[in-house]
């Protein structure tokens, strides 16, 4: 267990796909980077997406987590939100590249306390 103070304030991203060059993941990271909020990516597989997104948010010191599934399903979650009410959700098949970037940007905006874009 790491000492709490050592954990950097980051948005935690759980990614199911072990492929490092995942296009969707890159888009999410771009969104975060453009807004200037740090993040860390962890490879994680497991339960249903809602649960994983909540787990990611609990791992984050600023309480903001993202889960990206193999099928492209993506959720943005905040620790204080009920697990079945994510801040934003992308359904894999219907999504476009810009949606992932917007999700990343929204994660950062949530951290910075500025309005989200939908």
């Amino acid at each position: 267990m790491r000492v709490y103070e050592e954990i950097k304030p980051t948005v935690v991203i759980y990614c199911e796909d072990e492929n490092a060059g995942n296009a969707c993941l890159n888009r999410i990271c771009e969104g975060l980077e453009e807004e200037g909020v740090p993040f860390e990516v962890t490879i994680a597989t497991g339960d249903e997406p809602e649960f994983m997104a909540q787990k990611a948010s609990r791992e984050s010191r600023i309480g903001i987590g993202i889960f990206l599934g193999k099928d492209g399903t993506c959720l943005l979650q905040h620790t204080k939100m009920p697990y079945n009410m994510p801040i934003m959700k992308i359904h894999g098949k219907l999504a476009e590249a810009d949606d992932y970037r917007r999700l990343g940007a929204n994660a950062a905006r949530l951290a910075k306390n500025i309005p989200l874009s939908f």
């Binding site: 204080k80 939100m81 009410m85 801040i87 939908f118």
Partner: peptide, 10 residues
């Protein structure tokens, strides 16, 4: 209850 995320910081 949590507020609609669309209203967040608005």
């Amino acid at each position: 209850k949590p507020l609609d995320p669309e209203t967040f910081a608005r």
